[in-house]
Amino acid sequence: MIEIDNITKVYDGRPAVDSVSMTIESATITAIVGTSGSGKSTLLRMVNRLVEPTSGQVRINGEPTAGLPKNALRRRIGYAIQGHGLFPHHTVARNIGAVPRLLGWDNDKIHTRVNELLDLFSMPPDEFRDRYPAELSGGQQQRVGVARALASRPDLLLMDEPFGALDPIIRTRAQTDLHRIQRTLGSTILLVTHDMEEAIQLGDQVAVMDQGQLVQHGTPAEIITNPATEFVAEMVGGVDRPLRLLSLLSVSQILEEGAAEGEPIDEKSSLREALSVCLWSGRNAVPVERNGNPIGRVTLEAIRSRAEGTHEPG
């Protein structure tokens, strides 16, 4: 558990981060969203003490980070920096193995771990191990940057816009991969993004920042249905809000008894996909299946009632 306790960072008399408090449960993903310059990176960097807070405290499992030796603290925490920051004179393999090397792992173990990570990010080790960062595409560089942060299997990962330079398809895949990795390893992730879509997709919790302040912290559904301020409402995107909400819910949650005509969809599909299928095929209901066996149906009516109930803040 990470507790950020009333933390403030003042630059030149102006607060970049202004009295932010939040608690991050272990084994969850918290996405920090906000516009450019809202203090996201600064907040993140105060966790591994790349930035020393002006006031306030960060505690990891109850232990204040201010009392820990900086470098030992940082080696425990994975950090994927905004703009990758790979070492230009080291190969991909050496870059990914950097933290394990600092921690004194033996070479065989590092070798195996590097290959494992490259495979995980769909970059064949034989092809990529010995390349230099300048010989990679922007997206590949970014994936190597994330792989480097994961290398020592840290319990806590800080990621600053890790998927910024990826095209939508690779980006979605990288997000799914990260989600899977996080669920299997049970790591705690604090991820910065300026993309609300990404925050909603990835975050168990979403923290919205505006001008240095934490304006709302809650589950994606809370953020969408109940934006705390105008700013959050704007971030969530007025007209898209019902669709965003539907994308968070799965078909199994509004499953009804009965049958329906046409192609079935899987129970794990989101309501947004179900809605899309209804509209596209002109049906009022779609059959739902589990592992290929029909288990019921979902109706347009039920989907609509779920999409309502979004209220303007007031």
């Binding site: 470098n71 425990r76 990758h84």
Partner: peptide, 18 residues
Amino acid sequence: TPIVTLDAARGMGMTRHQ
């Protein structure tokens, strides 16, 4: 050395000497 590179090195816990 580019600033981000140095920042990454600090962030992974390299000492000043390293």
